[in-house]
Design a protein around this nucleic acid. Structure first.
Length: 327
DNA sequence: AACGCGACCTGCGAGC
DNA sequence: TGCTCGCAGGTCGCGT
């Protein structure tokens, strides 16, 4: 489940099921899902078994679970003496869902999913499923252990139940997302103007603003009536604010709808799909009428074009292609 | 710094 | 029926 709203749906589900529970055993069915854990599956499992999940934190599309009681807090190749100076909790289980990753809570009796990659058994809890499963068809996502380091702005590392000014090391290069109260539009706008690139590329750059992927980039651009190739270095403040607000609104609406899913690949921790796909105005609507144009009494059909080697959907009438760098 | 491209993967539907 | 092709919500790292 890739973009911010889908990942947040997973985070919220996860919090209610795993917070405070202990990981009793780890089963790695496909080591490729641990590609980013440099020390390998044995180290991964050895460090997780016996650990207690303190929280579930999200920044952009990254999710992590700060841990207590890790038997040998080695992190991901970080020497133990370096960790000794860190405030506890210093170790976290990191997850990125990539294109097709799922985190599912399941009872032990439920047959393994076809693409089950990692199984975490959890300490028993009343009425709660006993397993947290990582399922991933395309294996672009993965799990790994990481260390927590202080944030550079003193704010919380991400959205959490008990926010701490710590961030998973591998997520530290990611900017805050538009739904984060600590997100700074001023910083975003200053850095945006300093770039010489197309607006959509900037929106997809997780180092500039995180959480936005191909769907919500197109939706935000449609809503703000801006073209994906609009140069960033001449973008007016009002335009930047409009597209950022649009991204915020569309992602908040998607979150309220449980996320966007076109198929069973994108589900919450209980396996249920969101329904925001019915509210999409641009993404996937090639050849269909632009709803805004229709409301204004004119007919315009959305078109699909390649941009950055992926599909982009625009209305040729209300999102005109820039001509000379200003428009 | 920016950009294009390939790599990493599996599966689905369309078209022949 | 089976084959190939293009496509899919993401990120990383390499060249130029």
């Amino acid at each position: 489940m890739p973009e911010l709203p889908e990942v947040e749906v997973v985070r919220r589900g996860l919090v209610s099921w795993v917070r405070g529970r202990t990981i009793t055993s780890v089963e790695v069915l496909d080591p490729r899902s641990l590609r980013r854990h440099a020390l390998g599956p044995e180290d991964f499992a050895g460090n997780l078994e016996g650990a207690r999940v303190l929280d579930v934190v999200r920044r952009g599309k990254f999710l992590w679970m700060p841990l207590a009681d890790t038997p040998a807090p080695s992190g991901n190749g970080i020497p133990a003496d370096e960790l000794a100076d860190q405030p506890a909790p210093a170790v976290a289980l990191m997850a990125h869902l990539g294109m097709s990753g799922q985190l599912l809570m399941q009872d032990p009796g439920v047959p393994d999913e076809k693409h089950l990659k990692v199984r975490l058994r959890l300490s028993p809890a009343d009425g709660m499923p006993g397993q947290l499963r990582f399922v991933d068809q395309r294996i672009f996502g993965g799990l790994f252990l990481t260390t927590l380091i202080p944030t550079d702005d003193g704010g919380p590392g991400g959205l959490a139940e008990s926010p701490l000014p710590l961030i998973a090391e591998e997520a530290a290069h990611i900017a805050r997302d538009p739904l984060d109260p600590w997100f700074s539009f001023e910083t975003f706008y200053r850095r945006l103007r300093a770039r010489k690139t197309g607006l959509k590329r900037a929106l997809l750059d997780q180092g500039l603003v995180s959480g936005i992927g191909n769907i919500y980039a197109d939706e935000a651009l449609w809503k703000a009536q801006l073209h994906f190739a609009r140069p960033t270095d001449t973008l007016r403040r009002a335009d930047a604010l409009r597209v950022l607000d649009a991204a915020r609104e569309v992602m908040a609406d998607a979150l309220a709808a449980g996320g966007t899913s076109f198929d069973s690949l994108y589900v919450n921790v209980n396996g249920a799909s969101g329904y925001f796909d019915r509210s999409l105005n641009a993404y996937g609507r090639e050849g269909l009428e632009c709803k805004r144009c229709a409301a204004a009494g004119r007919v315009s059909l959305l078109k699909r074009e390649q941009f950055m080697n992926r599909s982009s959907y625009t209305c040729p009438v209300c999102q005109p292609r820039p001509r000379n760098g200003r428009w």
